[in-house]
Simulated scan of single mutants.
Amino acid sequence: MKKKKIPMRRCIVSNEMKPKKEMIRIVRTPEGALEIDPSGKKNGRGAYVSLEPLLVEKAKKNKLLERQFEVEVSEEFYQELYEYVDHQKARSQINGSV
């Protein structure tokens, strides 16, 4: 039986290659707004961040999202991203997938 290919993506903060399901996609919509994309299918320019709250803090400190997407990123977006990543990491630990 043929093995199923696991899609890999690179984290913009840590530069690690990880399975797509272990990361969160952030997308800049055609209108220029940044959004968290849980489905991974929204239109726009996307980048991936690992499900690690410390990496979100590092991205904020080094303004990585601003450089990646060439837009201003609000404090509220970073807070929303941090809470989302923290929640998803806790969920994955409960489910035993990570």
Rank of each mutant, 00 (worst) to 15 (best):
M1H: 11
K2G: 13
K2H: 09
K4Y: 03
K5C: 01
I6M: 04
I6V: 15
M8Y: 03
M8P: 02
R9S: 06
R9G: 09
R9Q: 11
C11A: 06
I12M: 02
I12S: 00
V13W: 10
V13G: 02
N15L: 13
N15F: 13
K18D: 09
K18I: 07
P19C: 04
P19T: 03
K21G: 07
E22V: 00
I24R: 07
R25A: 08
V27K: 06
V27I: 15
V27R: 07
R28S: 06
R28K: 15
T29G: 12
T29C: 09
P30W: 02
G32K: 10
A33I: 15
E35K: 12
E35C: 08
E35H: 09
E35V: 12
I36H: 06
I36D: 06
I36K: 07
P38M: 11
P38A: 13
P38I: 11
S39E: 13
G40H: 06
G40T: 04
G40K: 02
G40P: 02
K41T: 12
N43C: 01
R45H: 15
A47N: 04
A47V: 01
A47S: 14
A47Q: 02
Y48R: 00
S50Q: 03
S50M: 03
L51C: 04
E52A: 09
E52T: 02
P53M: 06
P53E: 08
P53G: 11
L55Q: 08
V56C: 01
E57H: 05
A59Y: 07
K60I: 02
K60G: 05
K61Q: 07
N62H: 13
K63M: 00
L65C: 03
R67V: 00
R67A: 06
Q68C: 04
F69K: 04
E70T: 10
V71H: 12
E72P: 06
V73Y: 11
V73D: 05
S74R: 14
E75W: 07
E75N: 09
E75Y: 08
F77D: 07
Y78N: 01
Q79C: 06
Q79N: 12
Q79I: 08
E80Y: 07
E80Q: 15
Y82Q: 02
Y82A: 02
E83C: 04
E83N: 11
Y84E: 14
V85L: 05
D86W: 09
H87L: 13
H87W: 08
Q88A: 12
K89G: 10
R91Q: 13
R91D: 08
R91A: 10
Q93R: 13
Q93D: 14
I94F: 13
G96D: 13
G96I: 00
V98F: 14
